[in-house]
Design a protein around this nucleic acid. Structure first.
Length: 562
RNA sequence: UGCCGGAUGGUGUAACGGUAGCACAGCAGACUCUGAAUCUGUUUGUCUAGGUUCAAAUCCUAGUCCGGCAACCA
């Protein structure tokens, strides 16, 4: 562009990486004066299921854009199909959006708020001769519509006089007809290569109790009719939706062009989120819950926001992730590793450190001097202000079974016969002998000599421990990916449930230090050297602690060739 | 095989005619009372073929491949 002025500081900031195409588009709209007031977006869930990480992308986008541009984002329920929707989901959706860190203020709307107005828009369309009541059965409707490669055939009712259609529509509303007997269709173009323009249905008769309007209505608008008009009613400037609605855009625009609307929103489409080792569709998540493959919508293995919350994923990590993945029109598959990276980054900053042994092996210190005593342990090395806590140290310890090897493989730095390791905050132990179960050959007890911290041995490993006398038993739930393959939908021959990971949940009984037994549900911790865990929001009780593994620590020990 | 989108390392994403950059993952090393964190270095990329241009990931043409669209769902 030859007429582009030299970039100002502000423009330089605007041009910095991260100006995805929707931001650029809004920038241009603003610059060209196409937005009269402020930028208004909306997050439009249908209250028929729980929100998942894919919705989080949309929430962060819509609410985030509104924040950035000093505008607002409406929460609007797309509740035009009473058969599927329920108040239960409304509550859950609001909890999840708030948890994610966004607030719609007073701008909570429902498409059902506009039913009367939408009905009048439909009447107007009929009066203008741009919509008609059609009497074709669903089967006939289908065959008249044609296929993508062949044009459709006009309905015999297409030229029904406006007055007659209007009368019929009013009687539809009055409940004179049976479900499915009549529909209202927009009169557009039966030969259009875009199926959505072949006289789409805009109203249908459906006798179902609506979760908000009850039985006030027996005719309900279709999504395409309700959505764009609701956007216009709310003064939405940028109506951001996912790619599958791209082919609906001509219809979105057509309706707004035909009717006298208070605003002229525009629809912009972006690619929905796909995550490896995960399924995201409502239908499939429903199936996992219904068939008992998981223990509910908030099962920590679910990609639902309530599942991730229960798993211990911080909302800030989800937001950072959603910013990191960007916004494009490319149908991509994002690695869960990126999500986990942001979860660890956030938790590393925030979570207090504790010691917990998941798979206990008894260590007896043969030269323990006197009584048990407390050592001082830091709560969070990333945050000195978090201070320290006392941890009881005694002559018998639980250590992680995997931290001992009777016959150590190469490059095994931890405890093995004759070798020394540091005990976190508590000196050193050297393995003198082991006691083995004669029947199984399993190591039962490791006898060690102890040296105080002052000994300052040069060792390659520090291991965590819990004093047997002071340990609290705890249940730990360790999670692995729900599926064994990156894309459970790739093989169209097989059902995705065939790829469920049978080991996605492992429940173990371990021991934790005493500072952990009275933690509040939901609190996040790092179990040193093991991973991030949080107190389960449902089952954790004082005295009966239950921890969910949020994510394991990165650990080169688990790499082969090490 | 109609229409609408899309294609940059293993993955995701920048570049808007002028040195292909960033993050994750990977690898190598430094540091370390967490084999974590942190720090350093590093392997790997413009779908193909033509064209325009001094110069193309970017513009043009043709092709290839991928996704979406035929609910009275959203």
């Amino acid at each position: 562009m030859t007429n582009t002025p030299n970039p100002t500081a502000e423009q330089a900031a605007t041009d910095k990486p991260g100006r995805h195409f929707i931001r650029q588009r809004i920038d241009r709209d603003l610059q060209a004066g196409r937005v009269s007031g402020s930028v208004i977006t909306r997050f439009p869930p249908e209250p028929n299921g729980y929100l998942h990480i894919g919705h989080a992308k949309s929430i962060c986008l819509n609410f985030g854009l509104a924040q950035e541009y000093g505008g607002r984002c409406n929460l609007r329920y797309d509740d035009t199909n009473p058969a599927a929707e329920d108040e239960e989901y409304v509550q859950a959706i609001e909890t999840d959006v708030h948890w994610l860190g966004f607030d719609w203020g007073t701008h909570r709307y429902h498409a059902s708020d506009y039913f009367e107005q939408l009905y009048h828009y439909a009447e107007a369309l009929i009066e203008q001769g741009q919509a008609y009541v059609c009497t074709l059965s669903p089967e006939e409707f289908k065959s008249y519509r044609g296929v993508p490669t062949r044009p459709g055939t006009p309905s015999p009712w297409r030229d029904r006089p406006a007055a007659e259609s209007l009368d019929l529509f009013r009687r539809m509303r009055a409940g004179e007809f049976a479900d499915g007997q009549y529909v209202v269709r927009a009169k557009i173009d039966m030969a259009s290569p875009n199926l959505h323009l072949r006289d789409p249905v805009i109203y249908r008769i459906k006798r179902a109790v609506h979760h908000r309007t009850g039985d006030t209505w027996c005719v309900y608008p279709m999504y395409d009719f309700a959505h764009g008009l609701s956007d216009a009613i709310e003064g939405v400037t940028h109506s951001i939706c996912t790619l599958e609605f791209e082919v609906h855009r001509p219809l979105y625009d057509w309706l707004l062009d035909q009717l006298e609307v208070p605003a002229r929103p525009q629809q912009i489409e972006f690619a929905r989120l796909n995550l490896t080792y995960t399924v995201m569709s409502k239908r499939r998540l429903w199936q996992l819950v219904r068939d008992g493959h998981v223990q509910g919508w908030d099962d920590p293995r679910m990609p639902t926001l309530c599942g991730m919350r229960r798993r211990g994923y911080p909302a800030a990590a989800l937001r950072a992730f959603c910013e990191a993945i960007g916004v494009t029109k490319y149908d991509s598959m994002t690695e869960v590793a990126l999500l986990e990276h942001h979860v660890r980054a956030e938790l590393n900053r925030r979570a207090w450190r504790r010691m917990a042994v998941l798979d206990p092996l008894r260590v007896v210190i043969t030269n323990f001097p006197g009584e048990a005593y407390a050592v001082e342990a830091v709560n969070n090395p990333e945050d000195p202000a978090a201070g320290t806590r006392p941890v009881m140290f005694g002559p018998e310890l639980w250590i992680e079974r995997s931290d001992f090897a009777a016959e150590p493989p190469p490059k095994f730095f931890r405890l093995s016969p004759g070798k020394t390791v540091r005990l976190r905050y508590a000196g050193f132990i050297t393995c003198e002998r082991v006691e083995t179960d004669p029947a199984t050959g399993e190591v039962q007890t490791v006898f060690c000599r102890w040296d105080p911290p002052a000994a300052k041995c040069k060792v390659k490993a520090t291991i965590h421990w819990v004093s047997v006398a002071h340990a609290h038993a705890a249940e730990m739930r360790c999670y692995d990916r729900l599926f064994t393959v990156a894309d459970p939908l790739e093989d169209s021959e097989k059902d995705f449930t065939e790829f469920l990971n049978p080991d996605s949940l492992k429940v173990v009984r371990g021991y934790v230090e005493s500072a952990l037994c009275d933690a509040a549900p939901g609190t996040a911790f790092q179990f040193e050297r093991m991973g991030y865990f949080c107190c389960d929001a449902r089952d954790h009780q004082p005295g009966q602690p239950v921890f969910n593994q949020t994510v394991a620590l990165k650990d080169v020990r688990f790499k082969p060739n090490r």
